[in-house]
Amino acid sequence: MANKKVIVTGGNRGIGKGIVLSLLECGYEVLATCRDASNFDFSHENLSVANLDISDDASVEAFRISVEEFEPNILINNAGITKDNLFLRMSEDDWNEVINTNLNGVFKITKLVVKGMLKRRWGRIINISSISGSMGNPGQTNYSASKAGVDAFTRSLAKELGSRNITVNSIAPGFIETDMTEGVLDQEIIDKIPLKRAGKVEDVASLVNFLSSEESNYITGQTLVVDGGLFMK
């Protein structure tokens, strides 16, 4: 199947799982990763899974072989973590860990796939960012800095690779119902969202489907916001 081989990092739960399931449903062949691949509680004939800790050089290096065998033409950089704390209480370790995973991890995994995309003259790179990266969020100086970095990375890489028919975009979800937002989502936040509800993982996954397809051919370097209207520029 042409142009339908996707890598999804952090594909075992939350938004990543939603993305994987929806891509499988659309007929894509998916290689999904997470730190411990035994955590995948679902399976599919077109799904393969791999251990990958994007913050760990040795793990990324070990993953290289899987990438070369799989020959992906679509990459969804989804894996990410939070270590929230007020800035005054945030430790340097919490800062570094989030930057290292969310930003440096995107650099490392993207490096693994770009050469193949260049050769095949077709590619889609979709980075899962966050509205936190453009609107800011108290307690998330580390997380929002990492996501703003991902958005900027997206724009520069889009300019570098555009001539080779490789598009690079990021998706900035707002408040989506996942483990990550559990305990954060309250009525006060919902009231501020014009669509008056939290997002579902499917709301993000459907945009990933579109950006992965030929139909998004002429969209690159963008950060597309999926937040029910919470953040409007």
Partner: peptide, 11 residues
């Protein structure tokens, strides 16, 4: 060649 071409040539 553009700059990306030179990288691709080396590849």
């Amino acid at each position: 060649a553009d700059s990306l071409d030179t990288v691709e040539l080396v590849m």
